[in-house]
Design a protein around this nucleic acid. Structure first.
Lengths: 160, 160
DNA sequence: AATAATAGGTCAATGTGCTTGACCTATTAT
DNA sequence: ATAATAGGTCAAGCACATTGACCTATTATT
């Protein structure tokens, strides 16, 4: 049964909570940080009648252009029925395009259109700007600490 | 900025991404970290047929014993109808108790039962253990960096 | 060529969890 | 007496995901 955080000996004198208080704070802070990162994109999405599912599609297709519908489905871990509607809506709005693969005419390769790429960049950019600002203001050292802690946490979730 | 930068602990670390790559990684890592923190409680909740909503109720009632139904509703930002079902289920499982307030017999004050408090502690403890481990393994300095960055992010979400 | 398997699309029924809206009881305030 | 408040409940509806069945094209198998 590990173990609360060790009592700090040479302490930082900013109001860094200790022990139990630090752990209580951590979860709260993470919530608000998460909300901050999500808020911007959600607002933009909403004006187009899109949801977080559409965002996820755009995100993965942006990072793996030409991925098939089946691959996307497996990646997002949803049924094809659940994927179908948002996929069609993105097509209707000309944000993505489906084209038959030439190596196998059954599979549809998904790619972002120009405006789809623009939207994705806008959404991603909104988030990255927040991170960039936070990292810049906090300093390189803090950035590294942030990453170290996050990777420790992520370990438990089989990050791949 | 509270830059606690004694360079002592900081060493040539494993591939710390730079620039754009760092920002791409940040969001991914945060996702996995979040999943890790949520996974444990969700598993425990599921065995009792409870959901995240029940968890939220337990959490807030634990931190503000005797809060009214209306206060809880406002805190969680849901309708009373949405609150009603999980509230009754928690009562049925003897995890919470509702009692008339003596200053005003219309309001019901919500409190955790002993087993409710135990469950809440178990859920919270599961999460805190993860944070504690991560902070311990990453070191005090990383902890502070983590917190600095998170607070920077959270600023944008009006953390209160 | 015939058949089976695969990638994808679609229709339908269902479920969950939330919403709005109306209406109800107790209790307190005017 | 009457109105306002805290809470509970019934009903309808919406959003979104699910499972299941069935359909077309296309490729692989024999």
């Amino acid at each position: 049964m590990p173990t609360r955080t060790s009592a700090a000996k040479s302490m930082p004198r900013s109001a860094v909570p200790k022990g139990q208080a630090a752990l209580n704070e951590a979860w709260r802070v993470m919530h608000f940080a998460l909300r901050a990162v999500i808020a911007g994109p959600d607002r933009i999405l909403a004006t187009r009648g899109l949801t977080r599912m559409h965002h996820r599609i755009l995100f993965f297709v942006a990072h793996t252009p030409g991925m098939s519908v089946g691959e996307l489905q497996a990646t997002l871990d949803v049924t094809k029925q659940a994927l179908n509607a948002p996929l069609r809506q993105l097509q209707t709005q000309s944000l993505i395009e489906l084209a038959k693969a030439d190596h196998d005419a059954r599979v549809r390769e998904i790619r972002l259109t120009e405006s789809g790429a623009a939207l994705e960049a806008q959404l991603t950019g909104e988030q990255q700007r927040l991170f960039a600002d936070a990292f810049a203001k906090a300093g390189a050292q803090a950035h590294e600490g942030w990453r170290t802690v996050m990777l420790e946490l992520a370990k438990h979730a089989g990050m791949k």
